[in-house]
Design a protein around this nucleic acid. Structure first.
Lengths: 124, 124
DNA sequence: ATGATAGTCAATCATATGGTTGATAAAAGA
DNA sequence: TCTTTTATCAACCATATGATTGACTATCAT
């Protein structure tokens, strides 16, 4: 064990939060500006209570924050957490891409050798 | 209802897949090149069967693919799906950012007004 | 004070998820 | 053939998740 940011509870929650279409819909809506629970619930066919729960999930994932406005509880997007997610993904996308370049380079070096090179399994 | 890519079953699975630290560990490992189930299971304290299930989850999310090599079933990263995830996130990050710029522009137009403008909430 | 508006809390339910153990399949090695 | 290696299948269990209904709290409007 003892990994890198791979073992990060906050990422667990962030990714889990975005695995639901309702919550992604909420995030999409909030990207255009804050909204109340009622406003967020309107496009969906589920109860307001269910949407309220979804918002709590997003809040625990720190993807959104809430303020007060009389009886309203406007919800705001926290873009910093979205950024943390892409940072994680891009990190490994980049490693993978570089790994490919490295393989390409190797194949290019061999070059003149037998054509069987393309099927090769590269060692770690 | 009837949203954009927000209602995409493949995204559901992709985000759900990355919500588990074991599966993120597997992705991290695969970014450095293909690996067998045993190799992938080695760093974790859970059974090989459990890891096998995790790989199936990643496979259904299309984040990895599998080939054959005798009794081995090497697992490979599918970076295209990672890219689809960042594409979704970045789309709304961008909208949100532009929304901010728009707000900034408005505040700048008002300008001469009270200096309270700077109190707006800055991210990260 | 009364009532409407906005939202949460609590109990409940069905299904999904992550893990286990034990049995089995498939290919390689002897 | 018999054994080892690699991996999956099957049954099972505990907990988490998404949704519902009904009751409740808090704030605003008259």
């Amino acid at each position: 064990m003892i990994f890198d940011p791979t073992t990060d509870d906050r990422l667990d929650r962030a990714f889990a939060a975005l695995s639901d279409p309702v919550r992604r819909g909420i995030i999409a809506r909030l990207s255009r500006g804050q909204a109340t629970v009622n406003e967020l619930a309107e496009p969906f066919e589920i109860t307001k209570q269910a949407v309220s729960k979804h918002i709590q999930v997003l809040e625990q994932a720190e993807l959104v924050t809430r303020t007060r406005d009389a009886q309203r509880r406007p919800v705001h997007l926290n873009a910093a957490r979205l950024e943390a997610m892409t940072a994680w993904i891009d990190r490994y996308r980049l490693v993978h891409e570089q790994q490919y370049r490295r393989l390409d380079a190797v194949l290019e070096t061999i070059d003149g050798a037998d054509g069987a090179a393309t099927q090769g399994k590269e060692e770690k």
